[in-house]
Nucleic acid binder design. Structure first.
Length: 412
RNA sequence: GUGGAUGUAGCUCAAUGGUAGAGCCCCGGUUUGUGGUACCGGUGGUUGUGGGUUCGAGUCCCAUCAUCCACCCCA
């Protein structure tokens, strides 16, 4: 079948079954986040291209080749947001909230990256993001992790792994970087081609290499956690103490590197191995330099983003809602009255579908397919006597009763 | 951006280069107000699209698009 009109590659529709699952996830996020006193914000999908160049970093893949960026009719350079943090910071600054104390925000919505689609990766995908401005941690870092964990737990996801790292700060990261690059250059003959490139471009990424050969060499590589400055080391220690106290399990993984330039200190990922190559389901960290970078006062902050579609893949799709009543109307005379009864039952709080009249057999078939709990059979006899015949679709029993009886009968 | 696999009915899939089929779903029927089972019948396809080879292409070749998976990268 030739589909002449198709959605854009990697951009998929959310059909009812899918959306039910998303709503379940969003519902859990709202409940848990608000329990930590975070407030929802709704931010633009279109932003000035410049925003992401200055925040995420011009050299990152996201900015250099994955952004949907274009010039609009007025000559403005705009793009579809590839992530949420930069826009949130922009909004925070634009609203002049830098002197209003810490801000606790969360949001959910679509993000866009023009990548090659694969499992767990789409060009338009949804993130649930959370940002906490004006707090330096480590107490808040612990709380963010605790919040993230209870969110995932609320979804029934208990088999996720929390990987934790510290990326250091302006003081210690450059020092570590030179140590690492030295090591990598010395070991260059035992590393693969892409590792050579990454040594120059983004040395911490080398540690992530999937080549067996490289990994055995990299076992001796210096780790960031051994090169943190006193302040970062203490921050990291207190974070771990807090997690231990709350009974939150984690593994320190010195290899995790957040993809975007603005991260420092605490970095974390909740990972599953049930999702193929895209196992990261929720990830984030601290970005103490970003707000200043975008023109605000030096303000520490921490946040994370969760991939809704990835979470959805780990969950059972919830059952479709079952109507309480399917209205079966028999005989043309009863049609109007049956519509009134449908309306009335809805006003009593029931979910009601009308089977549209016509043959009895057809209507019962419809009622069956909708998985209605009851059918309300309305024929001339019922209409005359102001009664409704209610059939229990599971047991097959049916009884004629007054309209008030129907309500109490169905409500038990 | 690179590599591999796959595109036939709404869905899942058949069809030694020789007239495109099945199951499920959907619609209708098996005596006039009763579903889920059974039986009968029916709708439904320019074989993803465009070229090429051939007397003849769903089948072979090329291109293109899409999906899936992996790399890169990331939620």
């Amino acid at each position: 079948m030739a589909k002449k009109l198709q959605s854009i590659r990697g951009i998929h529709d959310g059909l009812p079954e899918q959306v039910r699952c998303w709503q379940h996830i969003e519902q859990a996020a709202r409940t848990i986040f608000e329990r930590y006193a975070f407030s929802e914000v709704r931010l633009p999908v279109l932003e000035p291209t410049e925003l992401f160049v200055r925040s995420i970093g011009a050299a990152t893949d996201i900015v250099s080749k994955e952004m949907y960026a274009f010039v609009d009719q007025g000559g403005d350079h705009i793009c579809l947001r590839p992530e949420g943090t930069a826009g949130a910071v922009r909004a925070y600054l634009q609203a002049g909230l830098t002197r209003s104390g810490a801000q606790r925000w969360y949001y959910m919505g679509p993000m866009f990256r023009r990548e090659r689609p694969q499992k767990g990766r789409l060009r338009q995908f949804q993130q649930i993001g959370l940002e906490w401005f004006g707090v330096s941690g480590p107490v808040e870092d612990v709380e963010v992790l605790a919040l993230a964990e209870s969110f995932l737990k609320a979804l029934g996801l208990v088999d996720l792994r929390l990987e934790l790292n510290s990326l250091g700060c302006d003081q210690c990261r450059p020092v570590y970087r030179t140590v690492l690059v030295d090591f990598l250059r010395n070991a260059a003959d035992r590393l693969c081609e892409t590792c050579h490139e990454r040594t120059e471009k983004n040395p911490m990424r080398v540690l992530d290499c999937k080549e067996e050969r490289c990994q055995s060499t990299l076992r001796e590589a210096p780790e960031i956690t051994g090169h943190l400055c006193a302040a970062c080391a203490s921050h990291f220690e207190q974070l771990k103490l807090g997690l231990d106290a709350l009974g939150i399990g984690y593994e320190v993984n010195p290899r995790i590197v957040r993809g975007l330039d603005y991260y420092n200190r605490t970095a974390f990922e909740f990972v599953t191995d049930r999702l193929g190559a895209q196992g990261t389901v929720l990830a984030g960290g601290r970005y103490d330099g970003l707000i200043e970078e975008l023109g605000g006062p030096a303000t520490p902050a921490i946040g994370f983003a969760a991939g809704v579609e990835r979470l959805a893949m780990l969950l059972e799709t919830p059952e479709s809602p079952r109507p309480d009543f399917a209205i079966v109307s028999l005989g043309e005379q009863t049609l109007v009255w049956s519509l009134e009864q449908a309306d009335w039952l809805r006003s009593q709080g029931f979910v009601v579908v009308h089977c549209g009249g016509g043959g009895a057999k057809r209507q019962f078939k419809l009622a069956d397919r909708e998985h209605a709990r009851f059918t309300a059979v309305i024929g001339e006899e019922e209409m005359q006597r102001n009664l409704i015949t209610v059939k229990d679709m599971e047991t097959g029993e049916q009884r004629t009763m007054t309209r008030q009886e129907v309500v109490t009968f169905a409500h038990r």
